[in-house]
Amino acid sequence: MSSSTELTEKKVFLLKSLDGVIFEVEESVAVQLEVIRELIEGDCARPFISLYNVTSEILALVIEYCKHHAETCSGGTSATIADEDLKTFDNEFMNVDENILLELCSAADYLDIKSLFELTCRTLASLIKDRTIIEVRKMFNVENDFSVVEEKAVRKEFAWAFK
């Protein structure tokens, strides 16, 4: 007969960030990262999985997110309470610096975590909705590559949208 420790033992995986920090995560967390699902299912995740595009700061946040979602969904609470709990968590989780938010969005895209990608995209969209063009350029770190004449022409096409 197998011992009780064996029965309750959870499978863990090691994830290595871009800057070399190794995180230990349970299977319920790891499977949310679609990008490594195949490695996990094919048992090719030893000794650790390198995630080249994610820094330890961001990976720690991603793991926190996945952990909370895994625990809430398996917690045995009713679906409505779990839903409410996740909503509250998501709202608080999005209360971070804009640059972190952009990096989280990028990481969610790379790691293929659909719910986190949706959440970050939605949050970024509502953040920029009422911003000026100059503020948006600054936030996304893009240069204005229109000439003065060209920008004027683009603006003129839908001048009413600027009122």
Binding site: C121, K129, N144, A161
Partner: peptide
């Protein structure tokens, strides 16, 4: 692709303004 995803969650009027951000 990511910019597209973020922008696709904005209203039309905002998108018409954001055409001026860059090419």
């Amino acid at each position: 692709d990511m910019i597209s995803e973020i922008l696709s969650r904005l209203p039309v009027k905002t998108l018409l303004r954001f055409r001026c951000v860059e090419r």
